[in-house]
Design a protein around this nucleic acid. Sequence first.
DNA 1: GCGCCACTTGAACAATCGTTCAAGATTTTT
DNA 2: AAAAATCTTGAACGATTGTTCAAGTGGCGC
Lengths: 228, 228
Amino acid sequence: MAQPERLEKQGDSTKEKILSAAESVFGKLGFDGATMRKIATQADVPVALINYHFGSKVGLYRAIFAKSTPAIYDQRLVGLQLARTEPDWEKRVELVVKALIVPMFGLRARQSNGADFGRILARELTDPSAEGRGIFRETFDPIARMMIDAIAELFPDWTRAEVNWAYQTMLGAMMGVMIDNGRIARLSGGDADSDDHEAAALHVVTILTAGLKHRDRRMTAGDTDREA
Amino acid sequence: MAQPERLEKQGDSTKEKILSAAESVFGKLGFDGATMRKIATQADVPVALINYHFGSKVGLYRAIFAKSTPAIYDQRLVGLQLARTEPDWEKRVELVVKALIVPMFGLRARQSNGADFGRILARELTDPSAEGRGIFRETFDPIARMMIDAIAELFPDWTRAEVNWAYQTMLGAMMGVMIDNGRIARLSGGDADSDDHEAAALHVVTILTAGLKHRDRRMTAGDTDREA
DNA sequence: GCGCCACTTGAACAATCGTTCAAGATTTTT
DNA sequence: AAAAATCTTGAACGATTGTTCAAGTGGCGC
């Protein structure tokens, strides 16, 4: 009679079971592709239970973000603060890049279905359907602005356009790896694999860091802004 | 003087009308989000006509790729050949990067709903649903391998992993811009806009070119070792 | 004991999905 | 002009979608 989870309310275990299954199915099939019944089947519960616990499909979707998002936010914040204390400029650039990349790839490695959440996140960013659009704006825009400001501090002579494009380039490169579903391994014949989180993060960080540090401003100087 | 559609069979005009509407709806809503009825409404034709002309929803989807894909392939090929003839190494690196980026952004600017196709393409690459998966493998893998080989030629001392990760970083950065639906403009306060194809391409090319040229191999030389 | 409570269950709901069909309209061929 | 092939149309099909509902479960305070 005595159950292992005595301290928590009995519903919590099934709630987590549903959440975990949802993470897996959403990550594999996307928001539209995932169905309540597939999630219910994988969680081994009746469909109605999901609506009871999470209200609706988007409610369940939001719950996934609410679970894993704060950790990323905090780690990025810490990463940026750490970068600010670094006296050496070259290392500081690298630390800012890592503040963006590492927390995301770290989540993939740490959490059981972190890769699924990574896919969900990247898909949400790229999904034109309005469903969860607010999610991203509310959750990630603040830390994104901090990242952009950090880049601007590193390169005081850059225009705002250059700073912003630098951030977007970094973000896109990261998303491309997060969202990969086997093509990288296929194209490389196994020499590169997005499931190898450490190696993936290191390679991307390396290129992006170099890209920032050695960016040739002459190429984009004549844009809209004149510089002295 | 004669009617514009004199030479072609009469069905072609409606076929193109459907194709154009489909491009728009697919680009805006994604494959799952788009419905045959929404496409039919936008094209101002009955739903059944779509099935008559294209067989099925995926048939229509494939037709979109069949229409715009060869041009990109050809332009990338020409871009790589052009790079091969460039004697200056630094410029050659830039030309290889441009061979990847420019045709895609050029399509966005040239074609009426090129941006929609760009979104479709990026979404197809990132979509885990198996529907159109084969599309990408059949259509873009060959040119991707050529791009990877071109990078390997530029940097003979790099490992295959480094070469592949370099390509994937570039690809991801490009996709990130292609798939953007307003967040870049929002975050930058208008200083950067993915609808400004020329500026977007230029900025991304600039960073990626620098990233390749100045990549610090010490960071990825050893698998687990990261000390200088 | 009883009643209250959060939780669980299977069945059913209306809506929407892609697709099919038979019939009408139009063009092309004979 | 007659016949054949092609294109267009509105209505309907079965399947699947997210959600709701009424009934049922077991535990805890009284």
